[in-house]
Design a protein around this nucleic acid. Sequence first.
DNA 1: AAGGGGGTCAACCGCTCGCGG
DNA 2: TCCGCGAGCGGTTGACCCCCT
Length: 292
Amino acid sequence: MGRPPCCDKVGVKKGPWTPEEDILLVSYIQDHGPGNWRAVPTNTGLLRCSKSCRLRWTNYLRPGIRRGNFTDHEEKLIIHLQALLGNRWAAIASYLPERTDNDIKNYWNTHLHKKLKKLEANGVSSSSSHQPISKGQWERRLQTDIHMAKQALCDALSFDKPDCPPPELKPSLANYSSRSSASSTSTTTTTYASSTENISRLLEGWMKKSPTPGKGRASSGSTQHSETNNPGDSVLCVESATTTPDVSAESGKGSTDQVQLPMELLETWLFDESIGGSYGQEELGDLELYEF
DNA sequence: AAGGGGGTCAACCGCTCGCGG
DNA sequence: TCCGCGAGCGGTTGACCCCCT
């Protein structure tokens, strides 16, 4: 019984991706854009399941991903968003455009959840322990709030263009290529590091050639937050816009500063508005116990 | 110096959702 | 309206790495 496998298990490779596979995948996406994952294994010759390809792209190869050390801001946001949204990592990730849902999930499970548990053990009430309003009611309110917040954000940041600019690759790739060397600080680099840099260069060339990833975006209208820059759909737009070429010229410093604004706006919104009732207050109290 | 244990993170699994026929 | 398929999402696993004994 059971459901049929998503793809032929026979001959499907599993486990860690090799640099060669990464390059194959990236160059395919370079030509065709992300989406239509079903066709990727056959068209690339990769012995991987389509899901695996998608996952690899969204969680690792996709430009614009920042890895390693979460900032205090991000940490706070995650905690609050988790309190609001529950374990909807994809939704949470849409507010942290440089992070993948997998990353956030891992970070939550390995760091934050433990932290909160510790606090709980110390007698501080946990966020997950109370759900004061009914779920349906709460979700409706949340959706409205989110929608309003997005609008406010876009307004505040003057996003008059319906299309968000594509993620500027330089900062993204800097992050990407530094992932193996800088973020994890050290040891894990070795052979793969150079390979990821190769891929970075590849991607850089791609984005220079075709600055509008529209192909990719259009190719699968249903692609999720992480692979698309749906206009007004997430803070990703904000981030994208802030990392314009001029800005990116200032390298790393620029990008973190640029992200600051939407983060603060969101925080304000999170702290002040939508969780204003009994829901958020305790959380806020919890937070202040952290040494952020 | 070596072994064990815990932590971290990339990747897999399976369920759900949404779209198109 | 129903059904099938593909994509997305969240939970879980397993391999690797680091630190401690």
